[in-house]
Design a protein around this nucleic acid. Structure first.
Lengths: 337, 337
DNA sequence: AACTATCGTTGAAGCGCTTCAATAATTTGC
DNA sequence: GCAAATTATTGAAGCGCTTCAACGATAGTT
C-alpha cells in the first residue's frame, strides 16, 4: 500500500503538506498542490481509513440501524437505506448497516468504539429501547420515526396525524359519509409503533369535525385476512363508500377482492392508500394515495446528523407534510341519494 | 473515552496484556484475565476501532455493494443484506452498505483505503464492470450472482439452470405438454443479467428432452403488462396448461387476471413460481415454487469471504441446489383427453 | 527601512492500538 | 534439585495519518 509519506517523497514535499492538500485545511500554493495531486494519482494513493480515524477521531462512518422485526414495508426500508447511503456519500461518509440481532447495545458498540461518528435509527417505536443507549453514548443521532418522548432527540417522520386528516378531508370533499380504515396488522397497534395510531387519530378527529363515520379494522395483509377484514367492514357498515388503506401488503389483495365481490372502484367504493408511490402506481386502478416519502426521510436524516457532527443544533422535530395525489381509485359518491 | 492504557493501569498490568486478553492471541493466566475483564467492565472500555484497524491493518468491516439499478426483487436484496450483516457479526465484523452511485470505483476506494477487509458484490451481471476493479484491488471478495467469466472469482448463486429443469420436470410429471414462461422484464434479458437466461435454458433443454412445448414471454410486472403477456400467451398457444413465473412483481397481477378471465388454478392452469418463499405463501392459492434462497446466499457469501480473509482458498463456484415445493397452484392436467 | 501580517511549508508529537522480541515466572523431566 | 521447556507478562516499536507550533518568505503598512 502506498502511504502518505511516499507521496510526500515523490512530490518532494513534507507529509503535512500532502495532508493539507487532501483536507484543504491550510492554504497551499497552486504549484505544490498540483504536484502533490499528480503524485497521488501516479502512485495510486488512497489514504488509510484507520490511520485517518485514529488521528482525527472521526471515522467518516454513519451507522444505520434497522430493527429486525420491523413494521416497515421492506421496500420502504430499503429505499431509506439506499438514500441514506448515497446522501452520506455526498458528505464524504459511508454507512454501516446495523441490525439489532446483537441487541440495542449495538449502538453502544459502534459509537463507543468510534466506529461511527453518528447513528441513524430506523423504524423507531414509541418506547424504543435503543433511545436510552443513544443518549448515553452522546453521539450525533437522528431517528426516523417518532418516539413517545422526543425531547432532546432529533426526529424525522411523516406527519401521520395530518395524513389521516388529509385522507378524511379528501373523502369528505367527495361526499363520503361512512368510511372504513383497513389498517396494519393488529400487532402493530399492540406494539404501539406510533405511526398507525397517529394516522388513525388524525383521521378520526377530522372525520368527527366533518360528520363522517369511521370504523377501523386491522389487517394482516394476507389474502385471507384481507377478505375477512372486508367482509366484516361491509357486514357491520353496509353503507361504507370509501376505504383508507394503511397496509402495503393488503393493497393487492384488497383490489382483487373488491373486483371479485363486484364492487367497482371508484364507482361503488373509493380507495385511498397510505403507501409508497410505487405501490399506488402499480395497482390497477392506480390509487389515490398519500405517499411515504422514504427518500426525503433518508436524505433529511443524514443532513441532520451531518449538521450535528459539525456542531450545529438543528430542530428537534421534523414532520414532513403529507401530500395526497388523486388518482383513479377515488371519486364522488354515486347513486345513494 | 477510556483507552487501553487506562484499563491497563486500572488492572495493574501492561497494555500488551490487556490487548492479549482482548484478542486471545497469547495465553493469559486466569487471574489476570479476570482482573482485566473486570477493569474493562468497570471503566466501560471500548477498543478504538480506528486504532485497531491501523495497528492490525484489519478493519473488521466487509463492504456490501448493491447496484442501484438492480434486477433483483427488493425484498430479496434486503433479506440478503440483513443476513450478510448478521452473519458478519457472528464473525466479529460489520457491514458497510455501498451503492454504485459513485460508480464501480467505490470498490477501489473502500478496498484501497483499508476501510473494508473484504467485498461482497450483489446482483452481479454477466459482464460486470466492478469485477476488473475487484481483481485489481486483490481483496477477498465474493459475488452473489454469476458473471460470464467466473475464473479466479468466488461466486455463489442459485443453480438457475437446474431450477428451470426442475420446473419443467415437475410440470412434465403432472402431464403438461404445453407450458409458457412469464419472465422478467425484457430489459433484464437485454442486459444479460444471466440468471433469467440460465433458467430459460435449463427449462428449455429439459422440456425438449421430455417433449414439452415452451414459449417464453417477458413481462414488466405491472397489471397491464401482465394482462398483455397472458393474452399473447393464450392467443398464440391456446393449449397452454401451465405457467412458470419468474417475476415476483407479476405474481399478484397474474393470479388476479387468471381469476378474472375465468381460468381456475390449478384446474385449468397450473402455476409454478420462481420467487421468495414469502411471495409463494402469501398468494392465493399458495404457489408451487422454487424459492430464492436469499438467506443461504447471504450467509454463504460471508462465510466465503471470511475463509479468504483467513487465507483459505474456498471453491470458486457455489451453485445452490434448487428445491421445488409443491403447493396448491399446480396439479395434473385435466379434461383434455 | 523597519515592522507587522499573511501565506506556504515543515518537523514533530501523538492518536490508541497490535505485536515482536525479550524477560520473568512457572512447570516439567530426570 | 537443577536444567530445560513452557507459560505468563512486558517494554518498545510502529501502524499512517492529523494537527499544532514554528518557521522562512513574501507582501503590506507606516
Amino acid at each position: 500500500m502506498v502511504t502518505l509519506a511516499e507521496v510526500a517523497r515523490h512530490a518532494g514535499v513534507s507529509a503535512s503538506t500532502v495532508s493539507y492538500v487532501l483536507s484543504g485545511k491550510r492554504s497551499i500554493s497552486d504549484k505544490t498542490r498540483k504536484r502533490v495531486r499528480r503524485s497521488i494519482r501516479e502512485l495510486g494513493y488512497h489514504p488509510n481509513a484507520g490511520a485517518r480515524a485514529l488521528a482525527s477521531s472521526r471515522s467518516s462512518i454513519i451507522a444505520l440501524m434497522v430493527p429486525l422485526r420491523s413494521d416497515m414495508y421492506v421496500p420502504v426500508m430499503m429505499e431509506i437505506a439506499i438514500t441514506v447511503s448515497t446522501t452520506a456519500r455526498e458528505f464524504g461518509h459511508d454507512v454501516l448497516l446495523l441490525t439489532d440481532v446483537e441487541g440495542p447495545t449495538a449502538v453502544r458498540r459502534v459509537a463507543g468504539s468510534g466506529l461511527a461518528d453518528a447513528v441513524i435509527l430506523m423504524d423507531v417505536e414509541l418506547d424504543d429501547e435503543r433511545i436510552p443507549l443513544l443518549k448515553e453514548v452522546g453521539r450525533p443521532a437522528a431517528l426516523i420515526g417518532l418516539p413517545a418522548d422526543a425531547s432532546g432527540l432529533t426526529c424525522i417522520d411523516l406527519d401521520f396525524t395530518a395524513t389521516g386528516a388529509l385522507c378524511a378531508d379528501h373523502l369528505a370533499d367527495l361526499g363520503h359519509r361512512e368510511i372504513a380504515v383497513v389498517g396494519e396488522a393488529a400487532s402493530v397497534y399492540q406494539r404501539h409503533t406510533g405511526f398507525a395510531e397517529r394516522t388513525l387519530e388524525g383521521l378520526r378527529r377530522r372525520s368527527d369535525e366533518r360528520g363522517i363515520k369511521v370504523i377501523h379494522r386491522p389487517c394482516e395483509g394476507t389474502y385471507e385476512s384481507t377478505a375477512g377484514t372486508l367482509t366484516r367492514i361491509f357486514g357491520e357498515r353496509p353503507g361504507t363508500t370509501a376505504l383508507v388503506v394503511q397496509n402495503e401488503a393488503a393493497v393487492g389483495p384488497l383490489l382483487s377482492l373488491l373486483w371479485q365481490t363486484g364492487r367497482a372502484v371508484p364507482e361503488d367504493v373509493s380507495v385511498v392508500a397510505i403507501c409508497p408511490e410505487q405501490v399506488a402506481l402499480q395497482s390497477s386502478p392506480q390509487l389515490t394515495s398519500v405517499s411515504i416519502p422514504a427518500q426525503e426521510m433518508g436524505k433529511r436524516a443524514v443532513e441532520l446528523v451531518m449538521a450535528k457532527i459539525d456542531g450545529e443544533t438543528p430542530q428537534e422535530l421534523t414532520l414532513l407534510e403529507p401530500h395526497l395525489t388523486q388518482r383513479a381509485s377515488s371519486g364522488p359518491v354515486l347513486g345513494t341519494r
